[in-house]
Design a protein around this nucleic acid. Structure first.
Length: 747
DNA sequence: TAGCAAGCAATTTTT
DNA sequence: TTGCTTGCTA
């Protein structure tokens, strides 16, 4: 492709960009890696790049495949590109990995023995099916939990290992069992004409690998491929990109290895770390200028992430100035923590800030509860991002399952979901009989249920109930064949299945809410009907589309609400004021992560959290916290210890923890367990208790015992009361606050 | 078959 | 502590 003609329009696409951004946007052909630090304007680079490719004549919009991880990001990218170009980009594929694959598979799945009506199972559907497979194999469900096995299977699929490949490399008994379930699960999925989320990627790779003519067609079509959040891709997605863009190499990936926080779902950070090895002629551009945060916040982020080993060198800077110190507060317990944050929010709002400028992050969803109570009591409006999503609500899943069954009668999971919802006398036993009859006869569950009298072992009552149910479903199916609008179809389903009647009969507020949710679903469908192209497969398209939408009821900006969410959900967002709660060892980093050795991912999560803040950042920890009803005691997170002290405004709660404890629980209360820090010091003053050897001046070489980490030796004494101890058990070196850590001199 | 109580486990989750 | 699954009883 010839060099771009220098036109005024192209210049306009480059103005206002810094040098590295410009280099990335105006990159010619060939692989390009953009290492985009937090807040460095990566979306800007991506959108300008797309516009530049079109504006410069490198590509027409139908030749661009731009991939994101969320629908929201895809939508935003498309909108911004359209603004830059000044025209619509309908022919451009700007969508998630899963949506792109679903679209390819709608066209190509028949090659793999699926129909175009294939159903997409979400995690919970898939888990049900896994569970059934476990039961079918007569395995001990307590030992082989559906979620653990599902995780294993998903893991394998993310690595493109099918059931056969998986069973070849199994080690222990558990894995061998997983292999059996995996094989059965795969057969079941195929028989039901269904795919799980992982299959969408994997089956697409299958098609491209098995049918070179198909692969060549997509290669020729997508001459330029762009990928956002590349650090979150898994191996299957990597391979997909190789298949489509590996040859022409016009692949631009944008990401930040420091923000890879989805390893537990299969994301493989090596994809981004090894990009230059995969594409030796790749151009790498680093975006290190941050347009979001103060230098103090960036220094903190840089300092924390510097403790990770595997990473690409980056150093964020800004021209926005130093800003305020980072506030670190240690509170007595989670209630005090919540009161502190609520009080600060009140103060800020009094000063004129909008609540929508404030966000509170935490590691676990369950942490929101205490804060919510406090916010409600103080009448501070808030919204929570995450939690149960619209399409995960039971009533929505029920309605969608009815529709899915109409579109794909092979789908036994949906069948079993709706057959007795609302209750109509078709119990689990009967359902199992129908299912196993279908399996032995080699017919679909729909066909089996259509002649209930032939199912062995069914009682007369069950035969009658199933007959009546199938009569309703048959009538609905006939209607769906007539291409009625999807909205009308859902309405008919909800009325004729008795679903509305059932909810109305409940006469509770919850049921009323469910009815409203269902009406919203009808509304969504009507909107779809209004925009969708006429065609006989509207229902299929609708179903496959909503299967891939997870954030229908997410965040609205500017609603004057404080925003609460997990750190994971915070990725990609920014707020002027940020609070990170629960910065305690065991909670953040989470003890499971510590056990599993994924500390670096936790640290990246911390990095993500810190870099969301624009102006003010506060980290809080609690000395005591109720976890699942039992008091636990944690010391401040190591991540706090990794923050340069000179950046901090750090204060402990008045009186010190021991005094607070003594005051709140009285002298007769049991002492904290041995794992608590400074156990044994109940004397009142904040911990410099010389008598236990917990305080005083430490010297390098001294032997210590830590309540949680065991025996170790002091390897360094640092300013600010920090000592570095190397522990014998795992040879790890940890920084500890000598004054507060649960350590004693050994000997 | 359905409803209730006891038992048990318990990160994070873009699709 | 909560929320879900399981097993027992009507």
């Amino acid at each position: 492709m010839a060099d771009a003609p220098a036109s005024a329009h192209l210049e306009h696409l480059l103005t206002g960009l810094n040098d590295p951004q410009r280099t990335a946007v105006a990159h010619g052909d060939g692989p390009l890696l953009v290492l985009a630090g937090a807040g460095s304007g990566k979306t800007r680079v991506l959108t300008h790049r797309v516009a530049w490719l079109i504006g410069s004549g490198h590509a027409r919009s139908g030749e661009i495949l731009a991939i994101t991880f969320t629908n929201k990001a895809a939508q935003e990218m498309r909108e911004r590109v359209e603004v830059l170009l000044g025209h619509s980009t309908r022919s451009m594929w700007v969508m998630t990995f899963h949506a792109a694959c679903a679209r390819i598979l709608r066209a190509e799945a028949p090659r793999l023995g699926y129909t175009r009506q294939f159903t997409i199972y979400d995690q919970s559907d898939s888990r049900r099916l896994v569970k059934q497979c476990i039961e079918e194999l007569d395995l001990d469900i307590k030992r082989f939990t559906p979620s653990a096995i599902q995780h294993q299977i998903s893991d394998a699929k993310n690595k493109l290992r099918d059931a056969a490949a998986y069973s070849e490399q199994v080690g222990d008994y558990f894995e061998r069992t997983v292999a059996d379930v995996y094989a059965l699960y795969e057969r079941a999925l195929h028989r039901m004409n269904a795919m799980d989320f992982d299959d969408l990627i994997g089956r697409t790779v299958d098609v491209l690998r098995l049918f070179p003519e198909v692969r060549d067609r997509y290669r020729a079509t997508f001459r330029y491929v762009l990928v956002d959040e590349y650090q979150d891709t898994n191996h299957a997605q990597y391979e997909l990109l190789q298949q489509i863009a590996g040859e022409h190499g016009n692949l631009m990936v944008v990401g930040d290895d420091a923000q890879s926080v989805y390893g537990f779902r299969g994301a493989d950070i090596r994809n981004i770390l090894d990009f230059q090895d995969d594409f030796p002629d790749a151009v790498t551009v680093k975006l290190e200028q941050n347009y979001r945060s103060t230098q103090t916040i960036l220094d903190a982020a840089n300092a924390v992430i510097a403790n990770n080993r595997a990473q690409m060198e980056k150093h964020l800077f800004t021209e926005l100035g130093t800003g305020d110190p980072i506030v670190v507060r240690e509170l007595d317990d989670e209630h005090a923590e919540a009161r502190y944050v609520a009080g600060e929010i009140e103060r800020l709002v009094d000063e004129g800030l909008s609540r929508s400028e404030i966000a509170v992050f935490y590691r676990m969803n369950s942490q929101s509860r205490v804060l919510e109570d406090t916010l409600i009591r103080r009448e501070i409006g808030y919204q929570i991002i995450g939690g149960t999503k619209f399409y995960e609500r039971a009533e929505i899943k029920d309605a969608v399952a009815y529709l899915t069954l109409l579109a794909n009668p092979q789908d036994a999971v949906s069948f079993q979901r709706v057959a007795n919802t609302p209750r109509r006398g078709i119990g689990q036993t009967s359902l199992s009989r129908v299912l196993s009859h279908a399996n032995t006869m080699g017919i679909s569950i729909w066909e089996a249920a259509a002649s209930p009298a032939e199912v062995p072992g069914l009682g007369a009552a069950a035969v009658k109930s199933i007959g009546r149910f199938m009569e309703t479903m048959g009538a609905l199916r006939a209607r769906s064949d007539d291409h009625v609008p999807v909205g009308d179809l859902i309405d008919a389903v909800l009325h004729e299945s008795g679903y509305y009647d059932w909810l109305e009969a409940e006469r509770t507020i919850e049921a009323q809410g469910r009815i409203e949710n269902l009406q919203e679903l009808v509304e969504v469908a009507r909107e779809f009907d209004a925009t969708a192209e006429e065609g006989e497969d509207r229902l299929d398209v609708f179903l496959q589309q909503i299967a891939l939408v997870a954030d229908a009821d997410t965040r609205q900006d500017d609603s004057g609400l404080v925003t609460l969410m997990t750190l994971h959900n915070a990725k990609g967002l920014e707020y002027p004021i940020v609070y990170i709660l629960g910065c305690e060892e065991g909670l953040f980093p989470h003890s499971r992560s510590i056990d599993e050795g994924s500390i670096e991912e936790e640290r990246r999560l911390c990095y993500v959290g810190i870099t969301r803040a624009m102006r003010n950042l506060t980290l809080t920890s609690a000395r005591q916290r109720n976890v699942y009803g039992a008091a636990t005691y944690g010391m401040p997170s190591r991540f706090i210890g990794e923050l340069p002290p000179e950046l901090l405004d750090r204060e402990e709660a008045r009186g010190g923890w021991a005094a607070a404890r003594a005051a709140s629980i009285g002298g007769t209360a049991p002492r904290p367990r041995a794992t608590s820090w400074a156990a044994g010091n109940t004397s009142g003053a904040p911990a410099p208790a010389g008598d236990t050897g917990g305080g005083g001046s430490w010297r390098v070489g001294e032997d210590v015992v830590h309540a949680a980490f065991g025996e170790g030796v002091v390897t360094s004494v640092e300013p600010g009361g920090v000592i570095v101890v190397r522990f014998a058990a795992d040879r790890s070196e940890r920084k500890l606050m000598a004054e507060y850590a649960p350590i004693e001199r050994r000997g």
